[in-house]
Amino acid sequence: MLTELRPPVASFHQCVFRALRTIVGQHPVGVMILSNAGSGATISRLHRLAYDEQMVAQTKVDVEFYGVPRQRAGVDRVQLAFATSSVVAADVIEALVRRFPTLSNGCLENGWLHASCAANVDGCDFISDPATPLSCGQTLLVMSADAGG
């Protein structure tokens, strides 16, 4: 079960998390670190994630937004990192909902895409199965489904 690495409610941890995000943020639009550690992670664990990201984050998936999802997310793209090698599309969507709560407004619902949205892998295959596996380095495109011009 993947859990987003969230800071505990204590303000000290919040400060640490923000600082680590700054350190890890090697990609212009930000990196989300996900692990099995959960909110109970110790500071040392957080440091390990930050400095030895490759070891923990086994799967990185890029997400690009188009149309309304881009508007809701407020960014063009984001990279998500998972501490497992077996990532499926639903994991990515779940992470997106956490990272961009505004996507719940008409783009994502019930852990998957709203009917008005579609998903595509690497610009090639459109997918509708939440269990579609995604490999490290793949890109998930999340877009408005209607392509009428």
């Binding site: 690009e64 188009y66 149309g67 309304v68 508007q71 407004n105 008409g106 783009c107 709203h114 009917a115 008005s116 595509n120 610009g123 495109l141 877009m143 408005s144 209607d146 392509a147 009428g148 011009g149």
Partner: peptide, 24 residues
């Protein structure tokens, strides 16, 4: 007025441009 037409209402058909480009 719901999500099914949000693309047209909020962005217009012109928002196809970047997506179509990405899809070749």
């Amino acid at each position: 007025l719901g999500p099914a037409t949000a693309k047209y209402r909020e962005l217009g058909t012109a928002s196809n441009l970047l997506l179509f480009n990405r899809l070749g």
